[in-house]
Amino acid sequence: MQSIQIWNSKSSYGLVAILLHWLSAVAVVGAFALGVWVTQLTYYNSWYTHAIDLHHSIGLLLLITMLGRVTLRTVNVIPDDEAGMSIVQRKAAHGVHLLLYVLVFVSIASGYLISTADGRSIDLFGHLSIPAIVTDMQNQADISGIVHWYVALALIILTGLHTLAALKHHFIDRDRTLKKILGTTIPTC
């Protein structure tokens, strides 16, 4: 009998890890696209204020998702790398994964520091209010803004590389790497 695998095993990702992975993927790409778009909007565009509110909300969703993933890593096993991978390949993959986590957290933190530089809280989904903690540092909004842009740019480039690597695993190496995170290799329990 086939049942859905909730948690990770040594051979495959469970539903929790898979959902959190794809939720963060959509949030990273969505927040980046929205962030670039909002800077191009003119003052009278009907999205001028809503787009930034939505960007903030996606950022919070991403933070919660990523905290869930970090927690999951500490309490649940991580599936093994594919057998055919070299040491260098494994190290590169793990390095990229770690860097993706770091860049996501830094981009969220820097974005938060822009909007809360004057002590204002950030409203999320129009309801939840996230208070300002660090305020009034010298040039806080400008420096955070520069960090936010370059870190987000690095994150989206690295996300692209991560995607290309997954496609290489699938089409060239013909291993289970991409299938594992798509949840199409979950064995019967």
Binding site: I114, S115, R120, A141, G145
Partner: peptide, 16 residues
């Protein structure tokens, strides 16, 4: 000019 202050960090960043 960088000391512009309209009591709103994101707006001031835009004004700069």
């Amino acid at each position: 000019t960088a000391s512009i202050d309209s009591n709103h960090a994101r707006r001031d960043k835009h004004l700069r």
